[in-house]
Design a binder for these strands. Sequence first.
DNA 1: ATTAGCACTCCTTGCGGTTGAGTGCTAATA
DNA 2: TATTAGCACTCAACCGCAAGGAGTGCTAAT
Lengths: 361, 361
Amino acid sequence: MDLDERKLKILQAIIRNYLETGEPVGSRTISKYTDLNLSSATIRNEMSDLEELGYILQPHTSAGRIPSDKGYRLYVDRMMLEKEEQLNQATQEVKELQRILLEREDKMESVLKQMAKMLATNTNYATMISAPQVRGNKLKFIQLSRVDKCQLLTTIVVEGNVIKNSMITVDELLDDETLLKLNILLNTNLNGLPIEEINLAMIAKLKQQAGDHAGIVAEVMDAVASQIKNDENIEIYTSGANNIFKYPELADNQRASELITTFEEKQLLTELVNETLTDETGTGIQVYIGNETPVKTMKDCSVVTATYELEEGMKGTIGIIGPRRMDYDKVIDTLKTLKSQLDTIYKKDDGQTGTKIDYDR
Amino acid sequence: MDLDERKLKILQAIIRNYLETGEPVGSRTISKYTDLNLSSATIRNEMSDLEELGYILQPHTSAGRIPSDKGYRLYVDRMMLEKEEQLNQATQEVKELQRILLEREDKMESVLKQMAKMLATNTNYATMISAPQVRGNKLKFIQLSRVDKCQLLTTIVVEGNVIKNSMITVDELLDDETLLKLNILLNTNLNGLPIEEINLAMIAKLKQQAGDHAGIVAEVMDAVASQIKNDENIEIYTSGANNIFKYPELADNQRASELITTFEEKQLLTELVNETLTDETGTGIQVYIGNETPVKTMKDCSVVTATYELEEGMKGTIGIIGPRRMDYDKVIDTLKTLKSQLDTIYKKDDGQTGTKIDYDR
DNA sequence: ATTAGCACTCCTTGCGGTTGAGTGCTAATA
DNA sequence: TATTAGCACTCAACCGCAAGGAGTGCTAAT
């Protein structure tokens, strides 16, 4: 049995209707809803076929039909193809995004938080954004400065302008000259070096050259090391977790509790981010329906993600998490425009006037 | 009518029982539960009195009694007095705390996050911790460093070792000498200055002295300004929000949604932090029952908070949020030990070897 | 191929009765 | 006078049952 045009239309009608109401939809409804001018009986026959093919299912006999994951999948795939041609109009979301970006927020963190929030309020779903990951991890700059009599400040900058500070308390009193020497030692040996290449031998050599002040070198290296460690757990911001309560199918205690935990322990979301970053489909938009999602707690949800890229290799993920009966149309559209905005805004002016954002931690 | 010893014992028994079960407790239960050897009829009479006095109430006729806010309040006050003498034993929590602190985590943020999490898992309530607030806001150190040909790094350290960085992109090529001059200019004029005293006149003067490089000074001042702004919204970490689902009285959609939102939009918790930091009761432990809490969304919860102090003036708040029928005994005990640990650990060694924590942002 | 008609399924709703925990009151008791 | 036993009463919770209704599958007619 094959999916002819009519079956597709009916399936689409079922899904559209179910997205709105969240209730199983019956044959009579479809018979009126569509412009096919078919009686409910005919629709019933077709629905019976669709069920056999696995695109829809019945919660129980004598109930209407609801879309299956397979049905949603077909719907989403077709829809995304149709959308491809359509121009991205300037939506409300884009306007808000521009407002946010224009506000000269100089902290990546707060920009991302605001974006997540904006998306959540606009879509009525839960959202997450991962901060762009720096791939290359070359050391760009190391500096020791005296802040107090016995307190030194280490400042480390790695490629991508991620900055890291830490305080070191010293026993010995260092004169300015020694400090300068240490700075030169560190910079000449480490600048431009990929962090991975800093091994024990390297550290031993540095310590030896530092002589009396090997302890300080050790502390600086600790700070560098913790920079690497810190890079492994991606920064993720979420918003609108409370939106799940708007969808009865997610709002029962069991599920809600699990989902809330997932949003709180953002670590659980890294799996999602990793998944999206590796699996490239060209458009940069991914749709995970129900069991397809990489995070088990979201098996009753659908997740739509977009990967964005700021500079070469600085990739991040935006995700929208809602019920299976998510308004895929709107969500995909929103993410597409957002993604293209982000991609272009940051790519077009990579010169002098560059963005105001720095990736300060 | 007065509260004699017997009434108190009965009230206490009612509350104890209710804390455990969450169900209204009846006269027969109390008659068996206590060692008073009274029949249920007598208990009924006493309960009737207690209800008239407002310490307990009936959800409906022919149901048992549950404690009122007034009843809880009495219970908590008495209990805390009794506890006063009792020694703090080394509980599970303290052991874990010590483990966390010993792990040499050098980021305040991750220590606090871990503490919140630890508390949440140990108590089965939702928790929050506010990062210690710096009161005095003197500038301690300002530095401009060259990172790249046309990128400068501003490093600002204020009293309390809060560090702030930002990147500045410059059009003009600065030679090292100019950079040194700018650094001297900034440091001689600003070091030790309370941030509030940096006014327009001051800035104008600096700009004038900087001559050609007034633009850079402006950007540095912007960075300082955003440091102030950033200080207004307190950093708050939460954990265990999902625990609210363990208490049916909080787990209905309406309430749960509100609470989750409160935990997500941590700004709403600042009110709570401010409240606790001002209202000093000596012990540093506060208990808010039901409507007493400063955050409206928590009107059906109880909140127990402790204020801790790291260095002079560096105060923060730890809060535990649960249902009215919270295990006050355990929670207060836990917070007390935690607080005293924090207070002492940080106060006893304020010399050379000082703590490993720096307040890097 | 489509549709009208009909029997059937099964969830939902509402209703009445029963149960049981708990109360308040009264009268008896120590 | 304080306590207690006893009893009638209340009310949420539970159960079973019938009615209603939305929806289906099937069959026969168009």
